[in-house]
Design a protein around this nucleic acid. Structure first.
Length: 113
DNA sequence: AGTATGACATAGC
DNA sequence: AGCTATGCCATAC
């Protein structure tokens, strides 16, 4: 009998990347939301780290904080660029400078990787 | 194999 | 309403 070796579950990070990849233009998702979808309701920081690593070409700028704030600016991922990219996709910002989450948060019920 | 890390979230003050 | 403290947990080293 071949004991079917459980096909190694895709790493958490990989799942994060796969999920981020399917966010349609004009929408955003929060770190906590992604973590929850992947079965780790409180591992938002983990998602943050996954995005920090960001090995793949993925729409990283579509992942923001739950509050609608853009995460953080650094030389690699300039905040101004992130805002510009989102605006180009039609994401509207409130006067406070936050993304209008009510409009643009991508609600995904189930993962289908 | 143990510790540090991290683009967050939430509660409390 | 802004700040600190604490939880979180798979990777990196």
């Amino acid at each position: 009998m071949l004991k079917e070796k459980p096909q190694q579950p895709v790493s958490f990070f990989q799942q994060v990347y796969d999920l981020v990849r399917i966010i349609p233009p004009g929408y955003v998702m929060s770190y906590g939301q992604i973590a929850q979808l992947l079965g780790h309701p409180r591992a938002s920081r983990l998602v943050g780290w996954a995005m920090h690593r960001c090995p793949s070409q993925i729409p990283w700028y579509r992942v923001i904080k739950k509050t609608g704030e853009l995460p953080l600016s650094n030389s690699l991922f300039p905040l101004s660029d992130q805002r510009r990219l989102l605006e180009q996709e039609g994401v509207s910002f409130l006067t406070s400078g936050l993304v209008d989450m009510k409009k643009h948060q991508y609600k995904l019920e189930e993962i289908d990787l």
